[in-house]
Design a protein around this nucleic acid. Sequence first.
DNA 1: CTGTTAGCGCCTTCAA
DNA 2: TTGAAGGCGCTAACAG
Lengths: 381, 381
Amino acid sequence: MPARHDGDAKPAHRSRSVSSPTVAEVAAEAGVGKATAARTLGNYGAVSPEARARVLAAAEKLHYRPNSLARSMTTGITQTIGVVVADISNPFFAGVMRGIADACDTTDYTAIVLSTDEKLAKERSAIGVLIDKQVDAIIIASAALQPNETAHILEAMSRRIPIVLIDRKVRGLDLDAVVINNRESAHDAVRRFVELGHRRIAFVWGPTARERAADRRRLLALAESWLWSDAERLRGYLDALDEAGIPFDPELVTHCEYNEEVTVGAVGEMLALPDPATAILTTETDAMVGTLRAIRAAGLVHPRDVSVIGFDDSSWASVMEPPLTMIAQPMLELGRAAAQHAFARIAGDDGDAVVEAIPTTFIPRESVASPRTRISAADGR
Amino acid sequence: MPARHDGDAKPAHRSRSVSSPTVAEVAAEAGVGKATAARTLGNYGAVSPEARARVLAAAEKLHYRPNSLARSMTTGITQTIGVVVADISNPFFAGVMRGIADACDTTDYTAIVLSTDEKLAKERSAIGVLIDKQVDAIIIASAALQPNETAHILEAMSRRIPIVLIDRKVRGLDLDAVVINNRESAHDAVRRFVELGHRRIAFVWGPTARERAADRRRLLALAESWLWSDAERLRGYLDALDEAGIPFDPELVTHCEYNEEVTVGAVGEMLALPDPATAILTTETDAMVGTLRAIRAAGLVHPRDVSVIGFDDSSWASVMEPPLTMIAQPMLELGRAAAQHAFARIAGDDGDAVVEAIPTTFIPRESVASPRTRISAADGR
DNA sequence: CTGTTAGCGCCTTCAA
DNA sequence: TTGAAGGCGCTAACAG
């Protein structure tokens, strides 16, 4: 015990170094007990105003900053929430992240972000990292489709970490979720096409097709194996078709595999049909960009030859010629709301899981018009 | 000392609960000392293969997971890096963030993101948060312009936290920096205009003007008070003008205040000049979108009436009619490179600060052409 | 209201 | 190589 009887060997060795002062040092400076200093510095417990003032003054003088690691270790609270998304560079998730970040710095929380590229393996390891980091809550846009793919989420739940789903619900998971009203939004867009007289309405969406659904029922069955948000949009599309008594035509539902090039080809075929599409709803930016390229490649012009509406507004949409009618998603609100739910759970709220559906905003511009007479489209050029 | 002589009172009370097993528990299970278990679990020190195997088996059996907080507290290493940007929802920073995140999950680091909205106050508090969280390094796109605005960064440096600047250098700070070759990129773009015969070349950029610079020298002086990256682009623009012997005209340098609406107005004026701009270089997305709107509002068409080139490519640029010629920034590479520098510093590299300039990619499309004869532009419509 | 005394789970001397 | 013991900075439980 060499340093034992040399009372201040260690303090002396460190107190003048770069490292921050500790509660004990502040207490000494203030002439109070360690606990009293700790109480005022961590503001908990009760301290006399007088002692409190002395401690605060000492802390100020010594430039005291609490060691958050030590604090977290004893309290189990890290003031950190983990965010798991497909891709932080995707404008949608970037917007969501911003919303979460805003909510965080209002409440002195801090956010850790992890991207999964929709890969379950990466998602699993992301959850592992967050558990190890002992985040106080997790907000996740999960790529899990089936209940048997949710083990990692259940694991986090079993450790009593509050979890909030964002953008997508996951089957079999009874958790808070913040989503947009996908189904209604798609339904509404298609209805607008219908009202203008369109009957050949196409749906250009993300998921990769494993097979081409021959009929409506089959398609809906397959939808179970796609991201919830995509499936909902498909349902909305079908809802509107039903409502208008328009039969489902598999040739008008085109998979773009979340890829612009694939979209160009797929939409090209759709436009070359004997009875081509006269209106197109796209579910994401790449799909819209690909669709526009396909329209142009076919020598057509929107909205004269084809009307288009797309999910995910962007400032670019307003300078297209003509400007594009879009469905804007409230990304910031989505993120903020998710964070609020997370905070509520952290605070102890153990009520039933709540699903919050935030509405999109329909932004009418000029890419939608009545269909041209079929004749001109068939032999026009 | 109530629990003192009751050897396992506490362990018994917790070992079967939800909390993870500790090194001590693993050690007990493996029948070795705590230190030996700790050594193999934290893989440091030397352990006999035999003991090691037993410990690993025990850890496996008990589902041991190290408590990263406890580990961080004793080692001072958090395996976390902090990222401070203006706005994580801005596609540029979102891309940079993705690059950083990719580098992080290759190296088992984790990233915390904070947005500042270019506000120094928020930046200061962000740095404070990161210091408190004890991140191992900080990557920052600082809004600091003058050496006297860098106290918070110096503070972090004094705590020996490695710092890497990204996107912008900061005057007075001798730190690693990863940026793009702004000046050369702008110079190159303007030179292309010149080569096609343009003489009335405009520069539409972000910063808010405090005053309208009357001449070249004054403008450069003012540039000191703008973000480094913006100032560099301006210099590149002026370089090209000099090279071509084109006199600087203050009416062709328009401030858009990072705002689309402002841009529309400013560019509108520029297009209404007696001797209007025939080519425009924009420094960011909002500026480009605003410029396109202004061009259209003036009843003009690109590139016939005005040629345009802009910084920050986007998939939308390719579907504009005609497609836009753009300067693409390597966002992912920027992020990755910054992370690499951070890791190197964490690993102990204490060489001189290095500035890495990553080149942009010029993407020629169809928004650039030779200027029309002045006459038609002057009284055309 | 206050100070004393224990830990939190880990890494790290140190002596064996 | 190994184990015992001490300490990181903080909160928490308990007397006073």
